[in-house]
Design a protein around this nucleic acid. Structure first.
Lengths: 335, 335
DNA sequence: CTGTTAGCGCTTTCAG
DNA sequence: CTGAAAGCGCTAACAG
């Protein structure tokens, strides 16, 4: 169907190897032939078969991005950054969603052991307590980089934001706005981001001598319906918190929706502070106060780190961590 | 590095071809050997090299999704649908962003002529007036499907929503809420979605005898800054419209932000109606009224159509169009 | 500077 | 039911 090197070389009365070299600007080919070859290639609309090259070179010029969900502001921004970086480098990006299921994360990891990609960027699921599937990839020599949802026990570059610090500041902001009973709603008991954010939140409360009530530090799970019920129970109780610190956007939105149902006035009855990137639009700003992660930059940074280790011949990954700064965006009406 | 068929067959004292067949459940292999082979393969953690298979089979089990931007509610939802469908079928998804630039769309198309993917799903850029690059792909025998931003002159399956009808209904809603001076803010003069939405909007105005002022039917372009200025000028003028019909979410958000700057009260001073999928969150609902497209379903539907034509041996694509229904979500405070 | 040749790892006739 | 061998299209070592 498509024209290949053999045909092309025949038309040019040159050997296959000469043509191959000419097309890849090898220094051992004269300028004259290079020009002639390239012209003909364009004429015949020649495009190298990537599988043949990949097979020969043992590399694919492709990276994988594994994320819980693409339809999520943070992850789609990060994917944007990663894809943009990769495109600049002439690389292709395969995308895989785990839908927050460890089983899928494992299955995808297994699939990628075959060398289909030269490197992997991953943000773990809520459920990922064990990372031996990632370890296996590394053992096969496939470069891996974590971003945002990292596993701390693996020797892999990690790109995160300053979760503890930002949560600390965010909570201080709530306290300064007069909140005395702050609830933390998390997404996982195994994810570092969750635990760091919780720790930052608690530290701020401790510093300002706010009583910590463990019964209003809750964790959601996979079940959306149950989560809503949990949050509803929390917000509908007689000694309801006066603020919610939502670990992620998704939870902030659920909380917001429940406030509407319960006719609670935000921010009078309840303040919502959340990690969220929706506030790139003015719209969310008017509804809650948020901690925004530099998501696009994280994607680019992660890709950039990945390329660094991909380019190394004998790749020995180190567990360095790059921490980017989040920023606190204060709700309009609170300022 | 990785174990291959040769090694595996050596360990089993079988020929390469027998092992290959056993692994792919060929009927000409005895159950006993199949079992033995598969067990060993698992033991040795064997994974077929995809490039070798691809080269041999001339197919990649990979599709490409080409979109203007991934960090966009509609496109990320659609990508979610496409990726989910592909994952179910055991296919991989390559993602490419055009960033609304025709030049990139062309460059990506050229890259994909080499057979890296078995099929392509694409949503065009704002600038795409000419689609010969897509035609070239089709001529190379690569199945293509359009979704949302389609080119009407090509014989390709197209998945769209009922743009005219929904815009008509959305505009009627504005009119019934008392609007008398409605502005349409578009994104392109070549995209069918833009023109169909505009047509629907105008038709509703005509039906209800609302005066159409061409000076407030405007089109944005690539320049974000200029766009904001245009919209600001529109909303700051003495005979400002009492409603804006935003062709896409992006424009609705800009309009919203400008209202804040100008201290315009939404929806009292200005109503905003928009195509938007942000309203999956309660948050946007409280700010504007929107027409929501079934984005996830569109992604799945487009993937599904793509697979249909990919599976056909001698693929002759027809220009069938599948139209999905959008829904009008009315702003809370207006109900 | 150009050509010949040997694979990359897999699938698939064709023989047995 | 199993094995030998050719070849997918490209690259790179080796020769000239």
């Amino acid at each position: 169907m498509s024209v290949n090197l053999k045909e092309l070389s025949k038309k040019l009365n040159l050997s296959i190897s000469t043509v191959s070299r000419a097309l890849r600007d090898s220094s051992e080919i004269s300028e004259a032939t290079k020009k002639r070859v390239k012209k003909k290639a364009r004429e015949l609309n020649y495009h190298a078969n990537p599988f043949a090259s990949n097979l020969r070179n043992q590399k694919s010029k492709t990276i994988a991005v594994i994320i819980p969900a693409i339809a999520n502001t943070f992850f789609s921004l990060a994917t944007n950054g990663a894809e943009s970086f990769a495109q600049e480098k002439g690389y292709h990006v395969l995308i895989y969603q785990t839908h927050e299921e460890l089983a899928r994360e494992i299955s995808i990891s297994k699939h990628l052991q075959n060398g289909r990609v030269d490197g992997i960027m991953i943000s773990l699921t809520k459920e990922t307590f064990d990372t031996s599937h990632i370890k296996e990839l590394m053992d096969k020599g496939i470069p891996v980089v974590f971003f945002d949802r990292v596993a701390e026990n693996l020797q892999v570059p990690k790109i995160t934001t300053d979760d503890f610090e930002s949560a600390f500041k965010g909570t201080e902001h709530l306290i300064k706005s007069g909140c005395k009973r702050i609830s933390f709603i998390g997404i996982s008991e195994v994810l570092a981001i969750n635990n760091n954010r919780l720790a930052g939140c608690l530290a701020a409360m401790q510093k300002h001598k706010i009583k910590i009530d463990k019964s209003i530090l809750i964790t959601c799970d996979e079940d959306r319906i149950k989560n809503k019920q949990k949050i509803k129970k929390l917000l509908n109780s007689t000694n309801r918190p006066d603020a919610v610190f939502a670990c992620v956007e998704e939870i902030a939105i659920s909380s917001y929706e429940i406030c509407e149902e319960l006719k609670l006035n935000i921010p009078k009855d309840l303040k919502i502070m959340s990690y969220s990137n929706l506030n790139t639009s003015a719209i969310l700003k008017s509804a809650l106060t948020s901690i925004t992660q530099p998501a696009y930059e994280m994607g680019r940074e992660a890709a950039s780190e990945l390329f660094k280790i991909m380019y190394k011949k004998d790749y020995v990954s180190v567990g360095s961590t790059i921490v980017l700064k989040s920023s606190l965006i204060v709700r309009n009406s609170t300022k």
